[in-house]
């Protein structure tokens, strides 16, 4: 990897670490609660008392940003884990078993992929209590299909590889073959999909919350902070939208850069550190 590339990965890691520390220690870094309404200080620009200004209900944006970061990051990683778990196991089984089972399982994936995920999430929310847990599960449940498809394709081609057959000859049973030989080869793909999953989940959560159907409005999240801000931007209250916007963008970017690095990290030993291959 080039020096410049490594540099940006270091900064991304630093940023995410900082974000994690800041959000974890939020109570010590803020003077106002994230939900503390102060109607005497509505839409105040950044100042000494409110570092990043206040929103339309007089809530401190700095404080909301930190507490909201907890929610957004948790949702991002948890949803990714859910979708990765379903996607990888589904895809691996489908590809490894093959035949009719594979064809059936993949038609199911095709069907699910044809449904627009936002609409499905909105529809499903009717049946679940509105909470952070629900959002994590729903985002996870609606985003595993591309992972399954990709993993299935890799497993399908890997199981015909000679080294897999050679292991079968020395006595490896199918589950050994899958877990010891086939799945480890898909690690670079899984790493990239995981990273993509985090970005996707963070963005989906923001979208849903922006639409007012994500994280319940009484909890702060970056998406929530953007709900209804269009009006204030037009009347000059740029700080209301700018800071959560920057946070979302930077986080997604940092996660992506680190994902690229991870792909390299998981690559085959002989390819490690090489860019040209």
């Amino acid at each position: 990897m080039k020096w410049k590339g490594r540099h940006i990965v270091t900064w991304s890691g630093f940023y995410l670490l900082l974000l994690a520390i800041l959000t974890a220690t939020a109570p010590f870094l803020t003077f106002y609660g994230p939900l503390e309404v102060n109607l005497d200080a509505v839409l105040e620009p950044p100042s000494a008392s409110h570092l990043l200004g206040t929103d339309e209900l007089g809530r401190d944006i700095w404080s909301r940003l930190l507490y909201g970061g907890r929610v957004s990051l948790t949702v991002g990683f948890a949803a990714m884990l859910v979708s990765l778990f379903i996607g990888v196991s589904y895809g691996a089984l489908s590809g490894f078993i093959g035949g009719m089972v594979d064809r059936f399982l993949m038609r199911v994936v095709d069907t699910l992929l044809s449904l627009p995920s936002i609409i499905v999430i909105i529809g499903l929310q009717v049946f679940f209590p509105k909470s952070m847990l629900t959002i994590m599960l729903l985002i996870g449940l609606t985003s595993w299909m591309p992972i399954a498809r990709l993993i299935r394709a890799e497993v399908l081609s890997l199981k015909g590889e000679i080294f897999v057959q050679a292991s079968a000859v020395v006595g490896a049973s199918p589950h050994h073959l899958l877990l010891r030989h086939v799945l480890p080869q898909t690690m670079p793909t899984i790493a990239v999909m995981a990273i993509g999953g985090v970005s996707h989940a963070i963005l989906t959560e923001s979208t849903l919350s922006f639409l007012g159907i994500g994280i319940p409005p009484h909890e702060a999240s970056w998406g929530n902070m953007l709900t209804g801000v269009q009006t204030y931007i037009l009347s000059g209250g740029w700080w209301v939208a700018l800071f959560p916007g920057i946070c979302i963008t930077l986080t997604v970017l940092a996660v992506t850069f680190i994902g690229d690095r991870m792909q390299d990290r998981f690559a085959l030993p002989q390819l490690k550190g090489g860019e040209s291959i």
């Binding site: 080294f163 057959q165 030989h181 480890p184």
Partner: peptide
């Protein structure tokens, strides 16, 4: 299975690369 073993013509392809 144990009684019959195999050496393939392309050894590198028959080893798990990891």
């Amino acid at each position: 299975r144990k009684g019959i073993q195999w050496v393939h013509q392309d050894p590198i392809a028959s080893f798990d690369p990891r």
